[in-house]
């Protein structure tokens, strides 16, 4: 269960506080539930995802996570450029509670197999292309068991062969764990999500059926 209580967010710009992006989001996301966030560009979908994932802090309000929540998959941060892919993978395993050498080795070899970076796995991440980065990040988030995965447009990562594998893995996640995702593709949302949250004007509206949320979203686009 994830509780989002009265979350407000505005970013600090060089000229002081910017405009409000989120203005009082209240959500109760039940366990093992797949939710799609819908809204036009700039509605605050990624901002809300990052706050739920704990990457960024709300200006006001708070988020309670009563389960293990992933960091936003597909989000650009979280890789230290000077460290190799392997070292980054080890770091992530360690902070997520894998302490024995055996466990870490096991997780890292899983990440290595999935990401298929070849020899680059032992090169510094700053030498990676963006496709290689997203392969590594995707593999890292798969390697750890979360109750809820957070995904920001993740399924488009990598080349054709990888995308196919990633989608298969993503489907597996959607079947076994909770999922909160942002996607602009209606097909993807319908495929993976039961419920929808429509973000508009800084406010979130919950729909039990994703189809209803998509319908309201389309109507708002026509206006």
């Amino acid at each position: 269960m994830i509780l989002v209580n009265n979350v407000h967010k505005r970013y600090l710009t060089d000229h002081g506080p910017g405009k409000w992006v989120l203005q009082g989001i209240d959500l109760k996301i039940p366990p093992k539930h797949n939710v799609g966030l819908i809204g036009s560009n700039g509605a605050g979908k990624s901002t809300l995802l990052r706050i739920i994932g704990g990457v960024d802090q709300p200006t006001k309000g708070h988020v309670q996570r009563q389960c293990r929540v992933s960091w936003p998959m597909g989000y650009g941060g979280g890789l230290q450029g000077s460290l190799s892919g392997r070292q980054n993978a080890k770091f992530v395993c360690r902070i997520h509670g894998f302490t024995s050498a055996y466990d870490i080795k096991d997780r890292v070899s899983y990440i290595q197999d999935f990401a298929q970076l070849g020899e680059s796995f032992d090169e510094p991440v700053k030498t990676y292309s963006s496709g290689m980065r997203s392969r590594l990040q995707f593999a890292m988030s798969l390697s750890i068991d979360f109750d809820v995965y957070i995904s920001d447009e993740v399924t488009g990562a990598g080349d054709a062969a990888f995308t196919k594998k990633a989608q298969q893995a993503f489907k597996n996640i959607a079947d076994h764990s909770g999922l909160i995702m942002v996607s602009h593709s209606e097909g993807t949302l319908k495929q993976f999500c039961q419920s929808g949250v429509f973000l508009h004007g800084g406010i979130a509206v919950w729909f039990d059926q994703i189809d209803d949320a998509l319908k309201v979203y389309k109507e708002s686009q026509l206006q």
Partner: peptide, 8 residues
Amino acid sequence: SLFSYRQV
């Protein structure tokens, strides 16, 4: 970049 894991 490591603060994007909320544990850190």
